[in-house]
Design a protein around this nucleic acid. Structure first.
Lengths: 336, 336
DNA sequence: CTTGGCACTCGGGAACACTGAGTGCCAGAC
DNA sequence: GTCTGGCACTCAGTGTTCCCGAGTGCCAAG
């Protein structure tokens, strides 16, 4: 269907368009990439590519521009992920290593990624459901008020103030705490509900109202409130590129829900996902592509991170950066 | 110097320009605001206002546009802060009341403010230094590793993992915890350093290495790391307004340091601060104004929040919104 | 001090022509 | 059959010119 040379032409079109941001014509193309054929031949190939929907012309008598389908083919078959330079790797490593807590890791990561790719970076906080409980703490604040703190293995800390139905003594609280930690240590957050289900029954009668109140808040915090927190950085990199609808993109970025869907569902083994232009699920984002990857400590994917930019981005480089950053973050999280 | 009518003309110019975004001419002005004088008279007044630097013309034979100085006079003497409608107040109240923790309060606030003003909202997290300690918790994670958690009266939770020099027993930790809480409960964070200075001496010899390690991390967390966290929302509201340098503004928004300076130093008693165009300290932000206010629980200002928009914003409305939101947030924080 | 009149200015839009990059197609060469 | 050079054609973008009208400044009269 498409012989070797036509593919080469497509690759050349994509590369040139990405670097110049101008429709690329047959002549310039034949010169810059030494294809060994004349412009006329290139024109013929281009005509075919256009017919098949891989490229298009913005208007008659202008050069060609890749379509989403064209980029897709390019990404799938015509390009290789470009690894980072040694210098870049070192920079990542030192920059991320300085982080002091989870917040810091995420903030640094998102900035790093934005700077590295010169695009908008998006990072999701490690998922609660996939983490495990490292510690549960109950801190009495007042007679009838305590603070519930849950610390996960990824360093995430969730806390919530709980108003109790009755006055409780410190040792009652201490007892419950001990019990909770015994039950839950190392427990996947998704399984907390079942694990604590029978816990009130194992307490003395008097402690049960307190326990059920606390447990319901605990469950609410961990399970129901699946606010997979997301942050972004580098919005300034969007400005000046008029090929994307700036307003729409900014709106999308501030909608957690949309952002979640863009990063994509956690799929198999933190593969690199690329969504090109109209492939992505939000109509305001045609004209933009998303390159995302999962990251995690060890082999379970905790969450995702990625980059959002115009469809005419440099995919090989971007994919390399995203993959590298995802790996490093995974390492950092595993090591803390 | 400027008689009553000239001020009225200036006010009219500002109001018209804000609502139409087009230079306003003498004729239109004389008609729309019934000033009771002819266009010619208005022209004379305008000439004076221009000479004094309150208004300017973008080019000969165009209408007049307020200068920063003109807006300044308008804000200071010609306008009244416009209170919110009852409906808006209710909306704020219910929206903020639903917040479950500090993060949530801040997130909701910043969104609310962005939506209310249709501009970029900026909210600073309650300052650490001005808060007081509500509780300190030491959570053993491993033999030689504990987690330090500090909870402030504003609901802010700071945590940090500490690697200890020696193996410690649980009761040693418990003892230190008790001591810390006894010392620090209600202590202003700015004074923590002096308060705990002599603490190691009051411990048995064997506990001191552990204590000093923990204390140094504590101080580092609270004092040295003065990362007054800041968030913003509503960047999409900037798009489509070409009078501001979009790129510069977005860059500024992502620089915590710049943002801090924009909100202004916490000054006396949470007054409303307005910085107009070139008045503000960052050169990329000419063309934009900042309306900010302090907020706090009770009468000590905890932090600041505000709004950033084009100089040609509706100051009375914006100021009303900022003030109202600041008050409500203060109430919410005080009540939790 | 205010007002109507008047000449002047100049940004912005419409009409127009020109240029040049790029195309499609065809006939001839390999 | 595939490639190539040649050629006529298209059309976005640019520059030029022209004109209109909103808006101004100034002046003399009320």
């Amino acid at each position: 269907m498409l012989d070797e040379r036509k593919l080469a032409v497509l690759r050349a079109v994509v590369e040139d368009f990405v670097s110049t941001n101008e429709p690329v014509g047959s002549k310039a193309l034949a010169e810059r990439h030494n294809l060994g054929v004349s412009p006329a031949t290139v024109r013929n190939d281009m005509a075919v590519l256009e017919e098949q929907g891989y490229i298009t012309q913005p208007h008659t008598s202008a050069g060609r521009v890749p379509t989403d389908k064209g980029y897709r083919l390019f990404v799938d078959r015509l390009s290789q992920i470009k690894p980072l330079s040694a210098a870049e790797r070192r920079a990542i490593e030192t920059f991320l290593a300085g982080a002091v807590d989870l917040d810091d890791v995420v903030t640094r990561t998102v900035r790093l990624l934005a700077q590295l790719t010169r695009q908008v970076a998006v990072v999701q906080y490690p998922s609660l459901i996939r983490s495990t409980v490292r510690h549960v703490e109950l801190v009495p604040l007042a007679e009838r008020r305590i603070m519930l703190v849950v610390i996960t293995n990824t360093g995430r800390v969730e806390q919530r103030v709980v108003d109790l139905p009755d006055v409780v003594a410190d040792d009652q609280v201490a007892h419950l705490r001990a019990l909770l930690n015994a039950c839950l240590d190392g427990c996947r957050l998704g399984r907390v509900a079942e694990t604590v289900a029978d816990l009130p029954e194992r307490l003395p009668e008097g402690d049960r109202p307190m326990a059920t109140t606390i447990l319901s808040v605990l469950l609410e915090t961990l399970v129901e409130r699946h606010d997979e927190k997301i942050v972004f950085a580098g919005a300034a990199n969007l400005a000046g590129d008029f090929s994307v609808g700036l307003r729409e993109v900014l709106e999308a970025l501030e909608e957690q829900v949309v952002l979640m869907r863009l990063l994509g569902e956690a799929n198999d083994h933190s593969a690199l996902t690329v969504r090109i232009g109209s492939e992505n699920p939000y109509s305001g984002l045609h004209g933009t592509s998303i390159v995302a990857a999962g990251y995690g400590s060890g082999d379970n994917e905790l969450a995702r991170l990625g980059v959002l930019g115009p469809t005419r981005m440099d995919y090989p480089v971007t994919m390399g950066a995203v993959r590298a950053v995802a790996r490093y973050v995974g390492q950092i999280l595993a090591g803390s």
